[in-house]
Design a binder for these strands. Structure first.
Lengths: 208, 208
DNA sequence: CCAATTTACCTAACACTGTTCGGTTTTGAG
DNA sequence: CTCAAAACCGAACAGTGTTAGGTAAATTGG
């Protein structure tokens, strides 16, 4: 017999295997030895199903790093686990990215991030912006990396764009470059925030 | 009579008005007083059409800032104009984001960015990663902002997530918060890169 | 243990989608 | 004015998400 979680995991498996585009209600039903209409006894729409799957994936994201009171550590743990969660299911990145803030888990996490930053000494408005910025980085990296970044026919471009030739030689090491770029972006971002934070503390100390 | 550019701009107008999902070949044809099949005399597939539109939008992106030899200025101009181009057509962001590197204009720009960074003194590998990182930021910001960030029913979440209440009061100022977050992320990122750059120069000077 | 009711499932269909085939009309060149 | 090439159209194909109505199975109440 069908179950919500059974459908969910079958759909996720199908997406991971064949890509997002090849998930159709009929195909999913077939995978479960059932007719398509039956799925609608468990999920109101396909969108609901996808949102539920996205929700499940986001459960892996770790915001516990803020408990230490060290905002830099909190952000690092959060961003890395966030990226890892997306990387585990590359075909689903567009869904998660375009997904609305309606997701329960996502909101709880956003709350934890915001709270952690404020507790560590950031003004609330900064906390909001930092949370958003970090998300930008993670989601942007995930989309560019996993939703077909450069791809395939590399030889075509070689010689045509001299400055890129070096970069394209690394198309095979794309995963490595992606990971390194993400780490570079994250640490540069955090370093920059560190300066800002120091500036804020100094201003507050001077009473300015 | 139909023309490639006529179809393109009609499609873009339709997307901007009614969203990406409501662009169908039949509807687009109707907008042009024509039958759907006729469109296929000008575009091989709908995907081709979308790619062409995305291409057109990216034409606004400005990489001329690198000509000054100031990499920080070059990146700033690039990132801002990139974001502005995406913001001008929010419904199209997913298409541009998921779009392959196949686009001619995109590659030419990537080449300019890479070349500009190297000319300013960055090692090639760093240049590649910085280009990628900046794109992460821009695309991530665009997606989170425009593909339904928080949206709608705000009152539901109030009180439930105390740390977020402040943020949600600003749901109406979402555009402003997005812009500020992007600027914060960009300047923090660039500040961090500045430190890295200084470190590289020092190491090179020491012969290390 | 049987009856009643809820739930799960299936068949069939609707209104759409992107795309193609074959034929007709329009257009522009020689 | 002719003729070839290009543009356009009607109809269809295979596929999509989703729903209405009916049947079978499982669960509950007596």
């Amino acid at each position: 017999m069908l179950s919500v979680s059974g459908i969910r995991s079958a759909a996720l498996a199908l997406i991971d295997r064949d890509g997002l585009e090849s998930l159709s209600m009929r195909r999913l039903a077939q995978e479960l030895d059932v007719q398509a209409a039956s799925l609608y006894s468990h999920y109101r729409t396909k969108e609901d199903l996808l949102a539920d799957i996205a929700n499940e994936i986001m459960a892996e994201v770790d915001v516990s790093g803020f408990e230490s009171g060290d905002w830099r550590r909190g952000l690092t743990v959060w961003a890395r686990s966030y990226r890892a969660a997306l990387a585990a299911h590359p075909h689903l990145v567009p869904v998660v990215a375009a997904g609305p803030g309606r997701r329960e888990a996502a909101l709880r996490r956003a709350d934890a991030v915001h709270g952690g930053l404020v507790a560590a000494g950031w003004p609330p408005r900064h906390a909001t912006m930092i949370g958003a910025s970090t998300k930008y980085l993670v989601v942007g990296a995930a989309i560019n990396s996993f939703a077909r970044g450069f791809d395939a026919d590399v030889q075509v471009y070689r010689d045509r764009y001299p400055n890129l030739s070096q970069a394209h030689r690394l198309a095979e090491h794309a995963a490595e470059i992606d990971a390194d770029s993400f780490e570079l972006a994250l640490s540069a971002f955090l370093d920059g925030l560190g300066q800002t934070f120091a500036g804020l503390a100094r201003d507050a100390g001077t009473g300015a």
